[in-house]
């Protein structure tokens, strides 16, 4: 048995950058383009998360450990002070609130299907959902199970939305990713809480 387990840090922490870009867009172009910028940031973020889940499922072997900090803004890190933790928590909370508002705004402006991604943001406030995750053999098995369920739910939701609501491509994309995110977060939280 090797004494040293390889550790790879996966850190996706672009919330401050996204908020700054959105603020600039809002200043120059108005509320609707800024809301769309947030929507696209969210959709790309969930897509990256789905890729990360698939990657973890494929390449992590038993005994290997990865530290995934996909939503770690509220989690403590070694050597981090209280101030930086508070700052990260504040930035992350603002990002969640502002993104939820963007979805609600666009849903109110004639795209009701965008309520689904707004709902998916509520899953972020589940206790422990933002905890830093050490992806070891057990957590990996949970993530693989959860992402399998999430992929299936996303496909079924996409089919139902397509048949029942006749959405445009963006709304369909958003609905599939939102259901994927909700099921993934709920299924993982249920086992890892």
């Amino acid at each position: 048995m090797p004494n040293e387990t390889p550790k790879v840090k996966i850190s996706i922490n672009g919330t401050a950058i996204v908020l700054a870009v959105v603020a600039l867009v809002a200043f120059w172009a108005g509320a609707v383009p800024a809301a769309w910028a947030l929507v696209w940031a969210y959709l790309v973020g969930v897509l990256l998360l789905a890729v990360a889940m698939a990657w973890i499922g494929m390449v992590t072997h038993p005994g290997q450990v990865r530290v995934a900090a996909v939503a770690s803004e509220t989690a403590p890190r070694d050597g981090d002070g209280l101030l930086s933790r508070s700052t990260r928590t504040a930035v992350f909370s603002i990002w969640v609130a502002v993104t939820a508002m963007a979805f609600l705004y666009l849903a109110y402006s004639g795209r009701p299907l965008l309520l689904l991604p707004a709902l998916s943001l509520f899953a972020v406030v589940l206790p422990g959902a933002s905890e830093r995750l050490l992806v070891d053999e057990y957590v990996r098995s949970v993530l693989v199970r959860s992402s399998t369920a999430a992929h299936a739910a996303g496909l079924v939701a996409g089919f139902l939305v397509l048949v029942l609501a006749r959405p445009d491509a963006l709304e369909l994309f958003a609905a599939i990713l939102a259901v994927y995110a909700i099921v993934l977060e709920w299924a993982a939280w249920r086992e890892l809480r």
């Binding site: 038993p62 053999e137 057990y138 957590v139 086992e191």
Partner: peptide, 29 residues
């Protein structure tokens, strides 16, 4: 214990509750 083993707290919890049987390397550890 999780820190000593180099695994997550959730893993220790799942093993204790009988929800997860560890791999042989982890059991030896």
């Amino acid at each position: 214990l999780a820190e000593r083993l180099g695994v997550s707290r959730q893993t220790v919890n799942a093993i204790e509750k009988g929800r997860y049987d560890p791999s042989l390397p982890l059991a030896f550890k």
